[in-house]
Write a protein that binds this DNA or RNA. Structure first.
Length: 879
RNA sequence: GGGAGCUUAGCUCAGCUGGUUCAGAGCACCUGCCUUACAAGCAGGGGGUCAUAGGUUCGAAUCCUAUAGCUCCCACCA
């Protein structure tokens, strides 16, 4: 069958993906092979594939496919994350477009909408991954809101609560007074705003006329002040510490305290402490036991605590109170001031810090093994520079607030039977909770309808931190440590985690923590951090800028293999990738190059003729080149240098295989090829297919089947990764020399403007033997001979004096040029010798160097000496 | 404000414990070629004071110090 001149990926991608699936190559079950496990960082269930996913999942697929080729039992678990905040926001938006307000719906009604949305859009992203070629074990697809998975989340909450790690505490949340909900830090946009800085003086109690002046941008919160704070070293105020100040308008007496948190330089150096409405003030208040007075209603108006300002919006109060302060003589001055204010991403309302009761996980003890095992290298980070960031965070780890004021997610399994701080129980179901509550409250008459479940859900990460465990055995936490099922025992710990550095703390660190807590072992051995995919100008991909290409369009245009290669061409671990479709083009061109090599090889007629010397040498040589490159590729893989592995393979195929090897063995036009060379070529091509398979699975599979007829289950995807053969460096050296000679010949021909007109004859002496002679002849003549049918004639002659150096000369090159060349060589060699001598006479080097390094240097020294002698002899003979 | 990192060719980046396999790769660029696998190609070519200034050393892209510029993470200023 005639093969098309251009590689057409769309004709093969679906075919092979289906064949792999049908043959069960993606599905893994425990057996006696070594497992290689990867769990996907679960994308948002309703998300669509973006460039970040492309990069991330390409890398995972490369690692998984290579592991499979290495004979490991590869298992890549796919799945999705319910992503509470993101998904809920999307559903809210969608409802709003339909004219429905979330606040008009009951919890159940809202959740029904959310599930409808999830059923409609969930899984789209997984279908897109298939287009990319992702070899996931789809039978293991998980979702963080699956029934079993959810059970494991609740079990974890209950377990940690019983162990005393979970507690309830006050916390400042970002309150949106318009949406009447707390929003996450991610949903707060900080903007610079021109505002006023009000200087207000407070009377110091029991003094004749001492005042203390504070500066504030939010004078309305004066009503909630419960303290005034100065710096302990501030001479201006030292005498006031311990006295009391009197808050204007409300005439409340509050203590004057001293704390190093205060910035002496800002404003007057005095801070009014408002624990209910500022996070830092809250901490300060806690430290000094100050009262907490909440003056703000959920909708942004003030409470009865604000006296006559009750019921008025905070911004209106701000103006009015400033006026009143001025009238009463408390306002010292007002300055213009630029500060950052948080705005709600959803409603654009000014966010108010608001105290509320939240659930927390104590992190200090839990995270200890997670810190230690990264620090000591049990878990490796690639690139390693991220260890510093990780350590810094883990050493200063704060308790984890796990409650979210949302509906979409795992509802907190806490049930309240009263209004007291401790009037709650933790249980899996309301029925269980009732029994516990009866005991705890002592009220045996308690009924289910008096039991109220916490309205909040758990942080998304509180479910995804169990990912490497719960995708295999969601019942582990219930059963307890050491009771893992067969799957979990076999697949855990997983091998490589590929993810983005920005979720190192949200997700990676917490998986490590839960891994040690519940499995007593690391969740993965390596963490590969990808960079951020940016556009070629270095900007983040965003919808607003419209600079994010649709990955599916790219796949249709360049082919999945082309895009995969394109993504990897320029993405060393941890570096941001400046994406340019030019890289995909390069990937596509590479596919085409390989495709045409296939066309060439497939077009040959095999005949029972003798193998030419040149072909024999070519085979021996390429065998060695393959060895060397394979060694480099393996090394790159071991070091997670995926991009380098790809480039090494790229050069091996393009330069060595296509440009040199195929040119050498290529028979003349319509001439047959000998069987020995042909067999060897197919063997090489097969090995190359396997090596390229992790990067370009579809094309390699196609080649695999085009090269020879295949039996059932004989697929490239499950072939054996080539083993490095015996090294023969002599042939590589000789060939390098031959390459140089050929290049020289070509240049001379070009200079003399005789390209493709006069064939070449060569006389190679010294260590370059007759076989190489024929290689060179072949490489220099093949095209002109093919066309003219001529035999080589004596137009040039090249003499190589030794394998160490060569001097091309022709009848036109005179003795002077040759002498100049020799002198240059001599100079270079002497310089080299000098540097080696210096190195060897350096005591520090000699004492510090490893024995083999020292040996190598000595060898270099004697080689250089011999070479100098040889050149000098040659020069003498020319004189 | 705290922490981490970066600066090598037009672009994206390699360069391990200091040395002549070190000044590299890929892409882009320039020149010449529609050559019977491939113009999505082939053959050549140009291009870098290794951010700046000092220092250590026989020797520095590599180690040290300072300066400038850039990036990221965390905390956010009453």
């Amino acid at each position: 069958m005639e093969l098309s001149k251009k590689y057409e990926p769309e004709s093969i991608e679906n075919k092979w993906y289906k064949a792999w699936m049908d043959n069960g190559f993606f599905h893994s079950t425990p057996d006696n092979r070594e497992p290689f496990t990867v769990v996907i960082p679960p994308p948002n269930v309703t998300g669509v594939l973006h460039m970040g996913h492309m990069l991330n999942n390409t890398i995972q697929d490369v690692l998984v496919r290579r592991a499979r080729l290495l004979g490991k039992n590869a298992c890549w678990v796919p799945g999705t994350d319910h992503a509470s905040i993101a998904t809920e926001a999307k559903v809210v938006n969608k409802l709003r477009e339909a004219g429905i307000k979330k606040s008009d719906l009951s919890r159940d009604e809202f959740l029904q909408h959310a599930w409808d949305w999830t059923d409609k859009h969930g899984g789209i992203i997984l279908e897109q991954l298939k287009k990319l070629g992702a070899s996931c074990d789809w039978e293991r697809t998980s979702f963080t809101l699956d029934r079993n998975y959810s059970e494991s989340v609740f079990d974890t909450f209950i377990d940690l609560y019983n162990k005393g790690y979970i507690y309830r505490s006050m916390r400042m949340v970002n309150w949106d007074p318009v949406a009447l909900t707390a929003v996450s830090d991610e949903e707060v946009q900080h903007k610079e705003v021109n505002s006023k800085l009000f200087y207000v003086r407070y009377k110091v109690k029991d003094t004749y006329d001492d005042w203390i002046t504070i500066a504030t941008t939010r004078p309305e919160t004066i009503l909630a002040d419960t303290g005034v704070c100065v710096h302990p070293d501030d001479e201006r105020y030292k005498h006031l510490v311990g006295k009391k100040a009197i808050i204007p308008i409300v005439d409340r007496e509050v203590p004057i305290i001293a704390d190093a948190y205060i910035d002496k330089e800002f404003g007057t150096g005095c801070l009014k402490v408002t624990p209910a409405h500022d996070i830092n003030d809250y901490e300060l208040g806690k430290k000094f036991g100050l009262a907490v007075i909440d003056i703000m209603n959920p909708n942004g108006t003030l409470t009865n605590e604000a006296g006559k300002y009750a019921g008025i919006d905070r911004f209106k109060v701000r103006k009015e109170i400033a006026k009143e302060l001025e009238e009463l003589g408390y306002l010292v001055k007002v300055e213009d001031h630029v500060n950052k204010v948080g705005f709600s991403e959803r409603t654009d309302a000014v966010i108010e810090p608001r105290l509320s009761l939240q659930w927390f996980v104590k992190m200090k003890d839990l995270s200890k093994p997670a810190l230690d095992n990264v620090a000591n290298g049990n878990i490796k980070f690639h690139p390693a520079k991220f260890i510093n960031t990780y350590k810094h965070w883990m050493e200063n780890v704060k308790d984890w607030c796990i409650s979210r004021q949302l509906w979409w997610g795992h509802r907190i399994p806490a049930f309240y039977f009263g209004t007291g701080a401790n009037d709650y129980v933790i249980a899996r179901t309301a029925e269980e909770a009732l029994e516990l509550a009866k005991t705890k409250s002592g009220n045996t008459g308690l009924t289910l309808d008096k039991l109220i479940q916490d309205e909040d859900v758990l942080d998304t990460w509180f479910s995804s931190w169990l990912w490497p465990i719960s995708v295999f055995d969601p019942e582990l936490i219930k059963k307890g440590k050491g009771k893992a099922n067969a799957d979990l025992k076999y697949y855990y710990p997983t091998n490589d985690l590929v993810t983005a550095p920005e979720i190192m703390f949200f997700w990676v660190a917490r998986m490590i923590i839960s891994g040690y807590e519940y499995m007593g072992d690391l969740p993965f051995k390596n963490v590969y951090f990808t960079g951020i995919v940016r556009d070629k100008l270095g900007r983040k991909m965003s919808k607003q800028l419209g600079n994010s290409p649709d990955p599916i369009d790219l796949i249709e245009k360049y082919g999945a293999d082309g895009v995969r290669a394109g993504m990897l061409f320029s993405s060393p671990a941890g570096n941001d990738l400046l994406f340019d479709s030019q890289y995909c083009e390069q990937g596509r061109n590479f596919c085409n190059k390989i495709w045409n090599a296939l066309r060439l090889v497939k077009g040959w007629n095999v005949s029972d003729i003798a193998q030419p010397d040149s072909s024999k040498v070519a085979c021996e040589w390429f065998d060695q080149r393959l060895n060397v490159a394979l060694g480099e590729i393996n090394d790159h893989f071991d070091k997670f240098r995926i991009s380098d592995a790809l480039i090494t393979m790229y050069k091996l195929i393009w330069d060595d295989f296509c440009a040199w090897y195929l040119e050498m063995i290529k028979p003349g036009f319509e001439a047959p090829i000998d069987k020995a060379t042909h067999d060897k070529t197919l063997e090489f091509f097969e090995k190359l297919s396997i090596i390229m398979h992790p990067f370009m699975p579809f094309l390699s599979e196609e080649i695999w089947h085009e090269l020879r007829p295949r039996k059932d289950k004989d697929y490239c995807i499950v072939a054996k990764w080539p083993v490095i053969g015996k090294a023969n460096t002599v042939i590589l050296d000789k060939f390098a020399l031959a390459e140089e000679i050929v290049t020289n010949i070509r240049n001379i021909r070009k200079e003399k403007n005789i390209a493709n007109k006069v064939p070449v004859d060569l006389k190679i002496a010294g260590t370059v033997d007759a076989a190489f002679d024929s290689v060179i002849v072949k490489l220099c003549n093949i095209k002109s001979m093919e066309r003219s049918g001529e035999k080589p004639k004596n137009a040039f002659s090249f003499i190589v004096k030794s394998a160490e150096f060569f001097i091309p000369f022709t009848e036109q090159i005179d003795v002077a040029s040759e002498k100049a060349a020799l002198k240059k060589e001599l100079e270079y060699t002497k310089g080299f010798l000098k540097s080696v001598d210096a190195k060897l006479s350096n005591e520090r080097f000699v004492s510090g160097a490893k024995p083999n390094v020292l040996e190598l240097e000595k060898q270099k020294q004697s080689d250089a000496l011999a070479k100098i002698k040889l050149i000098e002899e040659k020069l003498a003979s020319l004189n």
